[in-house]
Nucleic acid binder design. Structure first.
Lengths: 208, 208, 208, 208
DNA sequence: GATGAATGAGCCTTCATTCAT
DNA sequence: AATGAATGAAGGCTCATTCAT
């Protein structure tokens, strides 16, 4: 019984957090009202407060939960570089494409938009989000690139810088094509951008 | 004189727009209250409405005015590539550095933050801002790169893609170092990022 | 108990509606501010909105509630004619007098004044009020007069027209004497007007 | 020149008053804004204040001017009873019909609506309007009826009461048919109401 | 623990009215 | 005398948050 209750309680908290992110993503932080979040979660308003104290707290937790999700997906993609196989270009293109897809997902876009938009009010939050997403991704990627460099499949280089540039070559043009996230980019266009990024990256970083 | 009046009126409108951008940048769209904007501009609240109808309108005009400013600065920088001189790398490094500085300015950062954060509520505004800033900058840069390619100082390439990648190599790492705009990046660090961007760019695009 | 809560909620709604009518009657629709209504009802402003959405809605409900009250009183008076007794004149005088009193009541006067004054803004409301007051009263009276005509205590006639004229002979002169509701008419004067109305009515409609 | 200026000034004042009544009639007192009145009159807002001090003053003058107009029309109609001719019923029907038409005019309806609606705020104004319209009309009609009674074309009676009742029999049913002024009553229906009023009136007041 | 009801605070907007020209 | 511009005052409405049940 207690276990069930506890489970039920946790589930309710989860439902509230998901509802919160949905509504924050839909309306932005200020326009989102706790009432709507409560409705989306199927609970009463005070229940939201019971579980998460504050609108601010609600925002923090909802955003960080999604940040963890997105990070996990991205790290997963990067793992693929651990065994790149013979065709390095193909491996990088695959990673680039899948990473682009992850970053273009509704959740990732909303996450960036919210974090960026509320940077002023939640200066610490943006750091946490950064740390959990870009930063860790960058480090993971830098690890892979360092190994590749060591294995002389890439030229000697600063792997962190290389990772930053790889990511920049990917996300910068994606933002242009998606109009800062306002439009969806087709799978085909994503592939094109990803391949172009890899092409430039390899021209700059290939061994020899 | 009439001229004085008209000038006075124009000045007041200008003052309001500037105050508006300042306050919007400080608080974000929703938290910014017209009262505070009026105080910042040194006028009474209804005067703000006399000149700009709406909070929404106020936002649009304030944002677009700054967008024009930033664009002008960036276009100015790009012009430098019209006569690159003998040392192409030096010229690109100069452009990259100055462009980074412009994009790191308080105004440019606030502009991105506001546009990004309010993309949901002002979907059309973000397009206008994009067109007036990124897009036009990208095209201007693409023009220069095309000429350089034609002059065989860069390898044959799609100049628009090259421009996108040049900008990405610049702004991506800058965002990482500025923690999405939360911290200032020193002139020295900016120089490092700019040079690294140009290095990678030239490795990928140099002639031969 | 739940009963108590529900009752409490209903009571509060009732209190708000009554307060609203009081304040609307005192100030008119536009001058009445929700703040004052809330104070009059002894609740906070948002509570008013919780219960009645809108100033407009508040007005509609408050007005209709009073319209129902006044109607009920008037219908009650007309019932008296169901058994007029031997002295028809006396019965009509009695009805006329009491009806005049009802229509001169503070509430009825305020009701007319509000409905008339806001006819432009609430075109539908005026119809509802009319239907619930004048119209139904007229029909009820017409019913009685029709019976009296059938019983040959009044001459054959169009009972609806007769009802209209009976009411007109009553309320027209009452309005003159009350200066369109600005002054109270004494019971004695009311009696005089009522008797004069009945006298003229009977001269025009008596049997033979 | 001075004459022309003076004339021009008077014309402008007139234009403002007419515009004011138009706008007040259109929106009601509170919703009417001085800005709109100024536009309707084709002048600037301060000019309105130069000529008429106040919104309140503006209202008083505009309303009284129209009250005078309506009164003049009504008195004109009543004059017709000075020489009723042989067919008294026909003469009364004619008067009743034309009076109904006057009272159904757009201006008269707006006048009643405004006066009634603002009775609370302008208690004195309603008296002035009453005096200039109903009261004087009633007296004029009473005069005619007194003569007719003296000439034994009506039975001996209190002429003021008779006048009140005549007017009541006319306007009461007209209000019913016009839904308190919300709908126009056709000429044919007006004729029917007028004839019915006269019929009842004559049954009650004819000589013999 | 969950909820219906209530509230304090705050913001956008409008308008009558006044200056300065 | 007429106007463009500016303002003080006020009101409708929303929302995060808290009680009482």
């Amino acid at each position: 019984m207690t276990a069930t209750s506890a489970r039920g309680r946790i589930d309710k908290r989860q439902a509230i957090l998901e509802a919160a992110f949905t509504v924050f993503a839909r309306r932005g932080y200020d326009q989102a009202c706790v009432q709507e979040i409560a409705e989306e979660a199927g609970v009463a308003k005070p229940t939201v407060y019971n579980h998460l104290t504050d609108k601010e707290n609600l925002f923090r937790h909802a955003v960080m939960a999604v940040a963890d999700l997105v990070m996990a997906e991205n790290l997963d993609v990067v793992e693929r570089l651990r065994e790149p196989g013979d065709d390095l270009r193909a491996a990088l293109e695959d990673v680039a494409y899948r990473m682009s897809r992850v970053c273009s997902s509704e959740q990732a876009r909303a996450l960036r938009s919210l974090a960026y938009g509320q940077a002023g009010r939640f200066p610490d939050l943006i750091d946490v989000v950064r740390e959990r997403t870009s930063h860790r991704l960058r480090e993971a990627l830098a690890d892979r690139l360092a190994r590749l460099s060591l294995a002389e499949r890439l030229r000697p280089c600063d792997p962190t810088l290389a990772a930053d540039q790889f990511l920049a070559l990917l996300t910068g043009p994606m933002e242009v094509r998606s109009h800062l996230g306002a439009r969806k980019v087709s799978a085909a266009d994503t592939r094109i951008v990803a391949n172009a990024a890899v092409d430039t990256f390899l021209r700059a970083y290939k061994a020899d």
